[in-house]
Nucleic acid binder design. Structure first.
Length: 581
RNA sequence: GCCCCUGUAGCUCAGUCGGAUAGAGCGGCUGCCUUCUAAGCAGCGGGUCGCAGGUUCGAGUCCUGCCGGGGGCGCCA
């Protein structure tokens, strides 16, 4: 079987020889067409005509005359302005969908060169509650991991948790004050915020506590075994708590993916030494810095990346550099993605620049910041992550399931046993889809009603469309697999069948575009359009009561491929799909 | 002050390497459950694509300037 390719590429390839006769290598510029009755349009003739000082429509006419599109298109027309309008033949389209149905990957070709990709995402802080600010990095990062795996790459998930730094002196002393058992209990029930706040309160209230905390930091940094043991208690309890959240959210992260800041401690002096050896290090105001080119601060003077502070402590830049060294060295990564908020853009750009200069990063394009916009409060300001009260991620997940349970109870005919599982998939699916379905770079205002909507362009709408595909097979006691082996002929008679078929063939392009730009919302948009076209088809084209057995079987193929596409699409986004709802 | 991101329908957002008459969801209005799941469908109404220039056969898309919003700019991470 020929390698499945996207329709635009296929048409462009068919037109290329004709374009080459005018000007070798000129681009046919094939795009989907919005015009009624036209599937694609080739716009390249107009630019070509301009360059050759000829009439666009005449150039287009000649190209059409030379091109061999008989087998593929039912109509090829040239507009007065020089657009070439291409309409695929129903029979060709039907045959194409038949092939598509037999492909378990639904037309998505594995990446020609499999890479090792490190994805850095989620990164919550030890002894701190996961809040809604962690949602975007976690959900987007997880979707990218799944997409990359599906594309054939080796994915190394790294959860770069905040498990080191001066706050731990305070946290450990507080742990001792309330007793290990009580501390472990508080942390294990996920009440990290009150633990952290109580530590902070003790620190602010008592000079004696402050002194103990400072001393404890020294003990921690010097590797005192008992202090490390207490620190480990905090880390272990926190990681267990994170894991509970991840499982509720249905993300891939495991405790074994945790590579906390502390894991680079031994590397930090090495990094400093190597930066020094390469002549990159400059001491400025007592701090050891690198001044990457092109970065300036307020007054126009060069902006430093502070690697080692004047007090001898290492800044987080040192940790980030060590992580880059580790990822491209020990792990031999081909690519590292940083699913980190947009405010860190400058910091990461500086780290990447320094890492490249230091030889840690082989080439600039191999480290990619995948930024996302801020979650804003009702006041349109950034949700505070430091002192300010924000919404706990756990509370948001609770609310998602509560609302979904109510919706399931109200709308679904499922029995009680199935309802809980479906409510979880619907609620969490709605929440994740809400985050994935808009361009990640944009800021958005935190809003329960928007994030947990179940109608319209939402996760549940996609789940529901798939459920409606599956219910047809259940109703008729048919196996969906029998319609996904390429053995059943597809015929196209009604417009909704045709529109659905055309959309199904666009899956690989949607995946490609999503990965090319690290933008899950592109796949969401595709799936939503597909679900809408399926629903139109579902409303107007009876399947089990089709006019003939041939049409019935053909429509069953369309249902089967739609279900498979929605299921696979949701799956690579990290959204579960129930069998019924 | 400098830099980054952003501005599209009442609200929330899509809009592909610049293509023809800018789309969807929510909300509003009108219909549609005796036929495969109404978390749905069909239809109506809704636009100075922030503003002004420029490039181009063609600009929501590219360039410049201005305005509004968010963020960043040396020892927190």
């Amino acid at each position: 079987m020929e390698v499945m390719a996207g329709l635009p590429e296929l048409l462009a390839a068919a037109l290329q020889p004709a374009f080459d006769r005018f000007e070798p290598g000129s681009d046919p510029v094939v795009r989907p067409s919005g015009r009624a009755g036209v599937d694609f349009q080739a716009n390249g003739a107009m630019a070509l005509a301009k360059r050759l000082s000829q009439r666009p429509s005449e150039v287009a006419e000649q190209i059409v005359g030379w091109a061999d599109l008989q087998a593929v298109c039912s109509s090829v027309e040239v507009s007065a302005q020089g657009f070439i309008n291409l309409t695929l033949a129903d029979s060709w389209l039907a045959g194409r969908v038949g092939l598509h149905a037999g492909d378990p990957r639904l037309g998505v070709v594995p990446a020609p060169r499999a890479m090792t990709v490190v994805v850095d995402y989620s990164h919550p802080n030890v002894a701190k509650e996961m809040h809604v600010g962690h949602l975007r990095t976690t959900v987007i990062g997880d979707a990218l991991c799944r997409l990359l795996s599906f594309a054939g790459h080796t994915v190394v998930r790294e959860n770069h948790i905040g498990d080191w730094g001066t706050p731990f002196g305070m946290l450990i002393e507080h742990l001792l004050d309330i007793g290990e058992e009580e501390a472990a209990h508080e942390l294990s029930v996920g009440d990290l915020d009150s633990f952290y706040r109580a530590s902070r309160a003790a620190f602010d209230a008592s000079p004696e506590f402050q002194e103990r905390a400072r001393h404890r930091v020294v003990l921690l940094q010097s590797g005192d075994p008992e202090t490390l043991r207490l620190w480990q208690v905090l880390v272990d309890q926190s990681v267990a708590y994170f894991q509970a959240v991840y499982e509720r959210l249905d993300v891939l992260l495991q405790p074994s993916d945790v590579v906390g800041e502390s894991s680079y401690n031994d590397l930090l002096p090495v990094v400093v030494q190597e930066l020094d050896e390469r002549g990159l290090l400059v001491v400025s105001d007592g701090a050891r810095c690198v001044f990457p080119e092109g970065f300036v601060n307020r007054d126009g003077t060069p902006l430093p990346l502070i690697v080692q502070k004047s007090d001898g402590g290492f800044g987080y830049a040192a940790t980030d550099l060590a992580a880059l060294r580790d990822r491209f060295g020990r792990l031999a990564a081909d690519l590292a993605l940083y699913v980190v908020g947009a405010p860190q853009a400058q910091h990461l750009a500086m780290c990447f620049a320094v890492a490249e200069a230091a030889g840690y990063l082989p080439s600039a394009e191999q480290a990619v910041h995948v930024p996302f916009g801020n979650m804003l409060g009702a006041d349109r300001k950034m949700f505070k992550t430091r002192a300010g009260a924000t919404v706990k991620l756990g509370d948001l997940l609770d609310e998602a399931v509560v609302r979904a349970s109510a919706a399931v109870a109200e709308r679904s005919e499922l029995d009680a046993g199935e309802r809980a599982a479906v409510a979880r998939m619907v609620g969490i699916g709605a929440l994740k889809y809400a985050d994935l379905s808009t361009d990640r770079i944009r800021d958005y205002v935190f809003d329960y009603d928007r994030m947990l909507a179940f109608d319209g362009n939402t996760g549940p709408y996609l789940q529901y469309a798939r459920v409606r595909c599956l219910s047809i097979f259940r109703r008729a006691s048919l196996e969906i697999a029998d319609f996904l082996n390429g053995s059943v002929e597809v015929v196209i008679s009604e417009p909704p069948e045709r529109a659905l078929a055309l959309a199904l063939l666009g899956f690989s392009a949607a995946i490609d575009e999503t990965l090319a730009t690290w933008s899950p919302h592109k796949l969401c948009t595709y799936l939503f359009d597909l679900a809408g076209l399926y629903t139109t088809f579902f409303e107007s084209c009876p399947v089990l009561k089709a006019p003939s057995p041939e049409v019935r079987d053909s429509r069953l193929v369309l249902c089967a491929v739609t279900a498979a596409t929605l299921g696979l699409g949701l799956s690579v986004l990290g959204i579960e799909a129930p069998e019924r709802m």
